[in-house]
Design a protein around this nucleic acid. Structure first.
Length: 563
RNA sequence: GCGCCUGUAGCUCAGUUGGAUAGAGCAUCAGAUUUCUAAUCUGAGGGCCGCAAGUUCGAGUCUUGCCAGGCGCGCCA
């Protein structure tokens, strides 16, 4: 007699079942032909396959007959122990219902691996780099940056979970015309402060923070710079200003629970001569040429609709000129996948960037994934808040953290598909009403924490059954449904990662929370008259709490013990 | 004009990458607490999935063409 095949994790069961079916059916079937999905309704089973429906014609059989054959094959196999029943249904679906053995094994597995539950080794240690935010250090981060930060950080956490070696990087534009504008703006405010009439730059930054910076320099060094030659002073002010602003950016990002591994400096790229080298390289390869006194990148060779300027006729370089060696550097560092999160205004830039990486590596553009993170439309109640960094009108990340709170903000940003526009009503978000789904999810954790406190208080002296000795016979349908929700977590993490869709995590959490709250209302957990059931349920809700906490952590929010 | 995104309930959005009877929250209405946290739960109403063709056993999902909205198309960043 063959040994029965027991499983702990859903993906493993499905994978082996596919392999088994391929072996049983012979050469004509590929593993990718077989697909398992989740029926829309629980009464239609826990997992189901449409294989019979899809391939019946190939086997010259009627779909329902074919499904019936498959049903018998699995029933006779060593897999049958994982299923309570298998049924053919509809036009030719085959529906599988989990056995209590599979369900209880699954729960036991969650308990055993604890915090690692949901992790997998799909990435197999491959290197992936996420570049996001990368805002110019010329002003505070806005709410649009906040969304990018939240989405990027969450994606990084998800990819770590599925076994990738992840690098989160911030590309710092610490040179160039915007940094000059920043210095010039502060210089003008400083000169005004010192009683001189100063010309404010046309594209200068008009925010109040510029005045504050000038004020602070005046406090520290008084009228020291008044006699300096203008350009020299502006250069000094540029340096001072961007360091102060960049430090604030770093602080805000850290407080927002967002982690960067590396901060890549454009200025350093220039100082090391790598921009120049890259341009020379392109010219040697004849994919850059001079025309009208400028240097052009022949991006049309790579599918762009027109060539792009690298060096302007005034001798200064464009962003693209720096981005080329920067992205080559990413490839040199051994990243097999480059993910860039950018705003929708950079959309036209994608083909340029693809050309840049292709110029270095034939497969460069396959490795590069540019994810557009859409804008946030901000509301205060019904009124839309218009934003412009240069005009100094915005809601900063700092204000967002202060007003809305980190948990709610992070959760809110993770909740929507990155490429969808997001309406963010500050008034609503800061009200902390039940409208806010993060509280609904966090409440699960707080409720369970409360039950566990009470359990310890009332039954703390009781000897608790070792986990393996739990009596699963007392499982009811409510228990089964709740555990089955828990078994979906690993696949959810995988799907969120491979599709770059963090909202799948929050969606899962809200669904799990709904299942739990409903369960809570119907089932008494602490029941001294039935300690076997109580022990079992304590283990179930501990696992629920574990996954809620794991899930919230992925989106950067916390799980409070009390609310 | 070209390109990208979006269009699903009154509102905000899901829809597991082509599956079975299209879902949830809010709002509206009707209920639930001698009980572990009511920030909760149970139920009801609410739909031309923008429109029209096509692909096939099967389409909210894929293709094409329209319609509507948003954004981008510089020797700006």
């Amino acid at each position: 007699m063959q040994k029965l095949k027991k499983y702990n994790v859903l993906p493993d069961l499905i994978q082996d079942l596919k392999i088994f079916l391929v072996e049983s059916l012979g050469d004509d079937v590929l593993i990718d032909d077989i697909e398992f999905l989740r029926p829309s309704d629980e009464v239609m089973g826990d997992i189901s396959t449409n294989f019979a429906l899809k391939k019946a014609s190939k086997f010259k059989k009627k779909p329902r007959d074919f499904a019936q054959e498959l049903k018998l094959i699995v029933e006779k196999s060593t897999f049958s122990v994982n299923f309570n029943k298998i049924e053919t249904a509809g036009p030719g679906f085959l529906n599988f219902y989990f056995s209590d053995l599979f369900i209880s094994n699954g729960l036991q597995y969650i308990k055993n691996v604890d915090k690692a539950y949901g992790s997998s080794n799909i990435g197999n240690g491959k290197n992936i780099i996420f570049e996001f935010v990368s805002a110019n250090p010329t002003g505070p981060l806005t709410i649009a940056h906040a969304r990018q930060a939240a989405v990027g950080d969450t994606l990084c956490r998800i990819y770590k979970k599925i076994g990738y070696h992840v690098c989160a990087e911030y590309y710092l534009n610490d040179r160039g015309v915007q940094i000059y504008n920043l210095g010039h703006s502060v210089y003008s405010r400083y000169m005004e402060k010192c009683g001189f009439k100063a010309d404010f730059p046309e594209n200068g930054y008009k925010g109040e923070y510029i005045v504050d910076l000038a004020e602070s320099i005046f406090q520290d060094e008084n009228k020291k710079y008044v006699d300096w030659e203008k350009e020299k002073a502006i250069s000094a002010f540029s340096d001072k200003a961007y360091h102060v602003i960049f430090d604030e950016i770093k602080n805000d990002i850290k407080e927002f629970n967002v982690h960067f591994d590396t901060w890549f400096s454009e200025r350093k790229l220039e100082e090391e001569g790598r921009i120049e080298n890259a341009l020379k390289d392109l010219q040697d390869k004849k994919i850059a040429y001079e025309k009208d006194g400028a240097l052009w990148f022949r991006t049309t060779d790579f599918g762009d609709d027109k060539d792009r300027v690298l060096v302007k006729s005034d001798g200064s370089t464009t962003y693209l000129a720096s981005d080329i060696p920067y992205h080559w550097d990413k490839l040199k560092r051994g990243f097999g996948k480059l993910v860039n999160l950018v705003g929708p205004d950079h959309h036209g830039y994608i083909s340029r960037l693809k050309a840049a990486v292709d110029a270095y590596d034939e497969k460069g553009s396959e490795k590069l994934k540019v994810l557009i993170v859409q804008l946030v439309t901000l509301y205060r109640g019904k009124t839309q808040v218009r934003m412009s960094t240069r005009l100094g009108e915005f809601i900063s990340l700092r204000e967002l953290i202060d007003e809305v709170g980190i948990d709610a903000a992070r959760y809110y940003f993770a909740r929507r598909k990155p490429e969808s526009l997001l309406d963010f009503d500050i008034e609503l978000a800061k009200q902390q009403t039940p409208d806010n789904p993060v509280f609904y999810v966090q409440y699960v954790y707080a409720r369970i924490a409360s039950i566990l406190r009470k359990y310890k208080e009332q039954f703390g002296n009781r000897k608790i059954n070792p986990y393996g000795d739990l009596n699963w016979n007392s499982m009811e349908n409510g228990d089964r449904s709740l555990i089955k929700s828990l078994l979906r977590f690993p696949d959810t993490v995988k799907g969120a990662a491979l599709n770059f869709e963090p909202q799948r995590i929050t969606l899962y959490l809200e669904n799990l929370a709904a299942v739990f709250h409903s369960y809570y209302n119907k089932n008494k957990i602490l029941d001294p008259d039935n300690t076997e059931k109580m022990d079992m349920r304590i283990h179930i809700i501990k696992s629920v709490a574990l996954i809620i906490k794991n899930g919230l952590e992925i989106v950067g929010a916390g799980a409070p013990e009390k609310m």
